[in-house]
Amino acid sequence: MTILIQQPDHHLGDEVEAKTAPINERELVLDGGFPIPQTNSFGHMFRAYHDAESERHEGVENFYRKNHTYQTLDFVKKMREEYAKLNKVEMGIWECCELLNEVVDESDPDLDEPQIEHLLQTAEAIRRDYPDEDWLHLTGLIHDLGKVLNLPSFGGLPQWAVVGDTFPVGCRFDESVVHHKYFKDNPDYNNPLYNTKYGIYSEKGGLNNVMMSWGHDDYMYLVAKGNNTTLPSAALFIIRYHSFYALHREGAYKHLMNDEDVENLKWLHIFNKYDLYSKSKIRIDVERVKPYYLSLIEKCRNLFSAVLPCKAEVVKSSLES
């Protein structure tokens, strides 16, 4: 997907710094007036992964047990090699958004609506507070499009290989990663090459050189890079790391970041507040907002290109390895 939106000259100075202060979940509004719900769709605090009373608790914990067990460095390498080909399926961006009507994120304790609702909730919340940052509106719309990996036409990957919080592989699993206890069943957990602070990486070597657990974030990043997108680097950073909560919420893994990562993290902090706190049972009037997002998509010349594995057994063998 090539993005041709002309970008304003962004200066990440005092204004942005002020807007990236730690969020107080009890505050009522975000930066420009977007109201923060005090509880999620089920009446619980956001990201309450250990709340046994939550309707989503058991399913979410079971998801992370599988995710943390099977997301190894070898698995990630196989998935990136296969899906970076981008040579099978082509479709328009809005068409891809509509496909997400069929996907509900099993890892999310805050929402059980189809994912197209979440895309529009995020984008509309950003649009309200940042009306002039059209690149950020579009980033909100497309940031989760990679969840189509869960659909049969895109390989039908299990949810543990598509959604959930992401984390680096090839180095020690930080204890701040949600449900860290399940990493003990991961083959890399006791591998001396991978279970140190830096593992196979170097200090301040840059997150672009770090292998992240495989899922919709990394896939959509590969789609954007593979189609020579002209979205700013902050948008690509948001797309690739918006589920990397151990970094942008807990402050872990900062020893792997370079100077460009530090600057882009400021925008991710802004984005995350809308990605998380816009989740609601209040439905978006799709037909009302659709013309605006179609106008943004019109600024994109080429199609959303995505990989469909040539043979189902290719993916199956990778998942079982």
Rank of each mutant, 00 (worst) to 15 (best):
Q6L: 13
Q7S: 14
E15K: 09
E15Q: 11
K19I: 12
K19T: 14
A21G: 02
N24D: 14
D31M: 08
P37N: 07
N40A: 00
F42P: 05
M45C: 14
H50I: 08
D51T: 00
R56S: 07
R56N: 03
E61N: 00
N62L: 04
F63S: 02
R65S: 00
T72M: 03
K78C: 10
R80K: 14
E81A: 12
Y83T: 00
K85C: 09
K88H: 09
V89E: 12
D112K: 07
E113I: 09
E113W: 11
I116R: 04
E117A: 07
I126G: 05
D132L: 08
V148L: 01
L149Y: 03
L151P: 00
P158M: 05
V162W: 01
P168F: 11
F173H: 15
V177A: 10
D188G: 04
T196W: 01
G199C: 01
G199K: 04
G199E: 05
V210L: 03
D217F: 04
Y219M: 12
L231Q: 03
A235M: 15
I239W: 07
Y241L: 15
E260F: 01
E260D: 14
D261K: 09
E263F: 08
H269M: 09
Y277N: 05
K279M: 02
D285V: 04
V286T: 01
E287K: 04
E287V: 02
K311E: 13
S317G: 13
